[in-house]
Design a protein around this nucleic acid. Structure first.
Lengths: 118, 118
DNA sequence: TTCCGTTATATTATTAAAAATATAATGCAT
DNA sequence: ATGCATTATATTTTTAATAATATAACGGAA
């Protein structure tokens, strides 16, 4: 038994500005879906999130950074749509890097803890 | 302006066993206070946590690991008390190590993100 | 034998977070 | 004009997390 099937360490890395969470795992997932679908509505649906919550997240992000992460348009042929800006793509990839780095940094103590779990 | 006063990354490292969080920042803080005070009641008060919640955390921890992290006694001269076991002290220090390692691992991308924040 | 401060536990109440619902606005296409 | 799929926003409802309250048990000390 090298690893216990049931056990895991999970990270929540959150970027704060004052009291507000301007980036975290939920927002990262939302932006990832948004990049694929081109629609905030579709992105929200894919992660079983209400459109309203998704929209309020985007609003907060857009006003927290020097440049908007998401550009949205309404009306038009398909009803409208939303997409990531280059700025947004960059932030998303930096966040992914943080997740990857920290997860690998934690390997040794985590193995020890795993041994201590039932 | 080297760092923005207002901004921070925060980690929530959680140890899961199935759906249950068997260790995390709250439990770590509780055990730290417990080590100092020798009383679960006092430890809870120091972090403005209800005794009931503290106790249920201890209960979950004690039944999730191969050995108990906390040993409690009731009755007696001071009414009773609780203390960390060696096993508990070890887990607490491993957790602290995870926090420290991951924070330092994240330095580079975090600096970049900080620049992007308003 | 009664008092004390604690652990131990269940039940109820409060609060905060999330979800659901509703509605307006947009602009292209048919 | 009307329909369409979306963004944008406010309001209400529901749910889940947390806190509060209550009570029992324990065992030494005065």
């Amino acid at each position: 038994m090298a690893t216990k099937a049931n056990t895991s360490v999970r990270f929540r890395i959150r970027v704060f500005r004052g009291k507000e969470i301007t980036f975290g795992p939920g927002k990262a997932e939302l932006l990832t879906h948004l990049a694929r679908t081109g629609s905030l509505n579709q992105a929200a649906k894919r992660m079983n999130m209400s459109y309203m919550k998704a929209w309020s997240m985007v609003k907060l992000m857009n006003q927290s950074y020097k440049q908007p992460l998401v550009k949205a348009e309404r009306g038009g042929s398909g009803g409208g749509g939303a997409e990531l800006t280059d700025f947004g793509r960059r932030l998303l990839s930096l966040y992914a890097e943080m997740e990857k780095e920290s997860l690998s940094a934690v390997g040794k103590p985590w193995k020890e803890i795993q041994k201590m779990l039932k």
